[in-house]
């Protein structure tokens, strides 16, 4: 009875992706007849200054964003893994941003970090600022990454806490009896046992960060001077907005390929690591 599932998958995934790939080889503007233009859109990806710049911005967001989302997520999960009322409150608090629209989170942080925002208002009586959280190019990018990490790492905390519940307590107690430190226990027992979940979280983080758009719109609008224009932002705000639908599709298809490649790479690395561990065992 796989028929309905295949039909649904085809309708929601295969057809749209197929149409997108087809349109990426055209000059379609959204309303005229589409003309086939070969790989022109794809070569333009690497000559269009806005797109190439946005690629670098996105690479930075993906590297630092995923590192901090996973790192903080793991740290928090390890700190909150014991069942207690306080830990439950903290888990809820860390997860809370995840249930709010990213667009709203961006506006919220804009009100905090802006030139006339809450933070600069608090700093002003001390003769500090205004700090360029959103108007200095580098600082704006750091602010954006920080907000993205803040908004996303709670999801990883929940994943990791759930995974940590599956780690047998006997193993940890045995290690403690053998004199292993907390760090040694985490490094050699806990983290390897939850590695499959970390892999899933990493893949989800990477794909999510590659698509960073909503927070960019409401927090920085891609500015100042395009310093926070992510790849997805350029697709939606610039290419799509300029009725370059064929080109926007080429950008989107390229993003899809990169996302898939990254996911495969992480999975392959994970498998290799597992095999190496089995070999050692």
């Amino acid at each position: 009875m796989a028929g309905p599932a295949v039909l649904l998958y085809s309708a929601l995934m295969v057809v749209p992706v197929g149409v997108a790939i087809y349109l990426s080889f055209t000059d379609w503007d959204g309303f005229s007849d589409a003309a086939f233009i070969g790989i022109q859109n794809y070569t333009h990806l690497f000559t269009d200054p806005n797109t190439t710049h946005s690629m670098w911005v996105t690479v930075l967001i993906v590297i630092f964003g995923s590192a901090f989302q996973i790192g903080f997520g793991l740290m928090y999960a390890l700190a909150l893994r014991q069942k207690s009322r306080t830990n439950s409150v903290f888990r809820a608090l860390t997860y809370y941003p995840h249930v709010i629209s990213a667009l709203i989170l961006g506006f919220l942080w804009n009100a905090i970090l802006g030139t006339k925002g809450a933070l600069n208002t608090l700093l002003a009586p001390f003769g500090i600022g205004p700090v360029g959280f959103l108007f200095e190019q580098n600082l704006a990018l750091i602010s954006l990454i920080a907000v993205i990490v803040w908004a996303g790492f709670g999801f990883n905390v929940v994943l990791f806490v759930a995974a940590l519940q599956t780690v047998p307590l006997e193993l940890i107690e045995a290690a403690e009896i053998d004199g292993a430190s907390r760090w040694q226990i985490n490094r050699n027992i806990v983290i390897p046992m939850i590695a499959p979940v970390v892999t899933v979280a990493l893949i989800l983080s990477l794909i999510g960060l590659l698509r960073a758009y909503d927070i960019v719109v409401s927090l920085t609008g891609g500015g100042p001077a395009g310093s926070t224009s992510t790849y997805a932002y350029v697709i939606l705000a610039q290419s799509f907005g300029s009725t370059k639908i064929g080109y926007a599709n080429a950008q989107a298809v390229f993003l899809m390929i990169v996302s898939a490649a990254l996911a495969l790479l992480v999975t392959a690395l994970r498998n290799r690591s597992d095999k190496a561990a089995e070999g050692e065992g």
Partner: peptide, 25 residues
């Protein structure tokens, strides 16, 4: 055909901004 594609894109490919389509008015 294009319109069908567009609706499906919007619904299913939230991971990307894959274009939709329209008929000529």
């Amino acid at each position: 055909w294009r319109r069908v594609g567009a609706v499906a894109v919007v619904a299913g490919a939230a991971s990307m901004v894959l274009a939709g389509c329209s008929s000529n008015g």
